[in-house]
């Protein structure tokens, strides 16, 4: 009789799954970069209250937050080829509808999904920067762009990093759904491997262990980064707290 639970297999098959780790991380990293760009633009549009765009992005955020990610993945998977076909017919072009690499669908869907969520964290973070910081920058003649780049965004990042980090961790786990777009990353590859020996449970346990370890490492790194950003909380060499307290009195 075969064993009920092949404990050894859980660990021995991990290296085989890990061959697909790069693709998982690539999807997560690339989608996060795009989602940050989208989120930042959406946040700026909302803060600046640009009229026409403001309504469009509100619709986008509301729609994205109101629909499940799996539905979004399917709509991109079937929707993008349709849009291309429409363009082909309309303008008499000959774009290759079937030639789109599957990963594109995954990236579009994940980035759009995550962008809607992160836009709110980014907006809140930018608004949390004291007005005086911007005024100080302007008063020494910095342009709006310089102020944004050198003062506002770095300060907002300190506030936004914990929630953006959470979003990134969510994204790593979210990549396990992109098999719907025919992308083979760790989870999809694992399912296929398990279908050969029917050890599905062992496979999912292995996957769980891998995801858990990755997110643990990532959240550790994020904490270190956060600490680094909060440079003003570091102890200055030679700063004597008691002397400072005396000065403050």
């Amino acid at each position: 009789m075969t064993v009920l639970f092949d404990f050894k297999l859980v660990f021995t098959q991990i290296p085989r799954i890990l061959r697909y780790l790069p693709i998982t991380l690539e999807i997560a990293a690339a989608s996060t970069v795009f989602s940050l760009i989208i989120g930042f633009l959406v946040a700026l549009i909302k803060i600046k209250k640009i009229r026409a765009l403001s309504q469009i992005v509100s619709f986008y955020v509301s729609f994205t937050r109101g629909t499940p990610i799996i539905v979004q993945l399917y709509t991109t998977y079937y929707g993008i080829p349709m849009i291309l076909q429409y363009i082909n017919r309309r303008y008499g072009l000959n774009l290759n509808v079937n030639g789109i690499p599957p990963i594109v669908f995954a990236l579009v869907a994940l980035a759009l999904n995550d962008g809607a969520y992160t836009s709110e964290s980014i907006r809140a973070a930018i608004l949390s920067v004291e007005k005086g910081q911007m005024e100080a920058a302007q008063s020494i003649g910095m342009t709006t762009f310089q102020t944004l780049k050198r003062i506002i965004v770095p300060e907002a990042l300190v506030v936004a990093l914990p929630s953006l980090g959470n979003a990134f961790i969510g994204m790593i786990k979210g990549t396990s759904l992109v098999f719907t777009c025919a992308v083979v990353e760790m989870t999809a590859a694992g399912r296929m491997m398990a279908s050969r020996n029917f050890r599905y449970f062992e496979m999912y346990v292995s996957l769980a262990v891998i995801y858990w370890v990755i997110t643990m490492v990532v959240s550790r790194l994020l904490l270190l980064w956060e600490k680094k950003l909060k440079c003003n909380e570091r102890q200055v060499p030679g700063l004597d707290q008691s002397a400072r307290a005396q000065e403050m009195v």
Binding site: G132, Q133, E135, A136, S139, V158, K230, C231, N232
Partner: peptide, 11 residues
């Protein structure tokens, strides 16, 4: 400008 609340860049 020198501000009432200093407005030094925090970080």
């Amino acid at each position: 400008m020198v501000f009432q609340l200093f407005n030094l860049f925090k970080y």
